[in-house]
Nucleic acid binder design. Structure first.
Lengths: 195, 195
DNA sequence: TTGACAATAGAACGTTCGTCCTATAACATA
DNA sequence: TATGTTATAGGACGAACGTTCTATTGTCAA
């Protein structure tokens, strides 16, 4: 860091540290991050970040990320304008971790093979998050054991029986009694372009 | 925590703390988490977690999450078996944060409106992660300014000109000179079912 | 019964953390 | 030129952190 210190550059440096060390820097470490030689200077900037909401404090006084810290800015929709790099207003910020990991412990990730759900926009190579313990409702996409093989299907309950349909006309729908085995309900789909 | 302490229950308790406090508990705090009355007992368990790879230590000696800590287990594909809750072997684990947030700072999130990319499996309401500074290559999905409106299109470079096509036959392809404005390249698509 | 080991308690201790206080340089304002 | 304000340095200090040591309890095998 050779340029002038600003609220933005300082926040960025700390956020970067947190991102790859999985913890907040100590004041002594921040001396290096901000390129200053006293803890007082660090505290000066920390106070600013606290005031601006980039940082917060625990009940126990520990610094923790807050607000727009680990998140990405969200633009309402494609038609709206784009956030400029300079802009630093209170925009919507989304922390993907919090958005997607609603039920760690009962969830797992599945790599999709096959095209049984292309009609739903779920394609080969996508990752889906599956909740093992969620009660399936009609219309949900579920992972089901069909003839000893695990596949994804739409789930529909019709009284006693259950209907499983692919989102692909080339696979026939399946009627099953209640003893069918379910791997869980799909709660999210993730596709990543570029490695 | 009333049951017996095991490596799993202890790891779970600490992971839960980290998940919603965004930091590691201190040894004193772990006394409560693990329901013990001495820091020695805490250290006894911490050592186990360190040995098992659930936790790790900084160069500076701070505890940090490691391995399967904040992540979800990954099952290779639908056809393979499912991880049972008891199972705790070294399975593939994916930390969504690390997987998706490859370039924070130059990325933002966009909520999709319209159906211009349904052929690509990108639907209204999905979130896409857009990298503002990535150089678009042919075949990439980009956000582009078309006649004063931001839309998603396939990007193709043909010598000097650029072709933008929707993944939907009802929108005509567009040829443009180099002065077209791009909002960035889509690096990921996220869809969440259920709130 | 004895011995080994796993699990815990409690206290002592040095280190480092974050806070606070004072002093100083740079810069803008009046 | 005087005078605040902003940004920094350096040192002092108590509190809390993680480590280490010793002691105690329960369980299981010999």
């Amino acid at each position: 860091m050779n340029e002038k210190r600003t609220i933005q550059t300082v926040a960025k440096a700390i956020a970067a540290f947190f991102h790859d060390r999985k913890r907040m820097p100590t004041y002594t470490e921040m001396m290096e991050l901000l390129d200053v030689r006293s803890k007082s200077a660090v505290q000066f900037w920390v106070r600013k970040l606290l005031a601006n909401g980039f940082l917060a404090k625990d009940k126990k006084g520990f610094l923790i990320p807050s607000g727009s810290f680990g998140g990405l800015p969200v633009v309402g929709n494609v038609a709206a304008g784009f956030p400029s790099p300079a802009e630093e207003e209170l925009r919507d910020v989304l922390v993907l971790e919090d958005y997607l990991m609603t039920k760690p412990g009962t969830s797992y990730i599945l790599k999709v093979t096959g095209d049984s759900m292309i009609g739903e926009g779920i394609r080969e190579g996508d990752l889906v998050i599956v909740d093992r313990e969620r009660e399936p409702k009609s219309g949900d996409v579920v992972v089901a054991d069909v003839d000893g093989e695990w596949t994804m299907k739409y789930f529909t309950r019709k009284g006693e029986t259950v209907i499983l349909e692919a989102a692909n006309p080339k696979y026939p729908p399946i009627k099953a009694r209640s003893e069918l085995r379910l791997g869980g309900v799909i709660t999210a789909v993730i596709r990543k372009y570029h490695q």
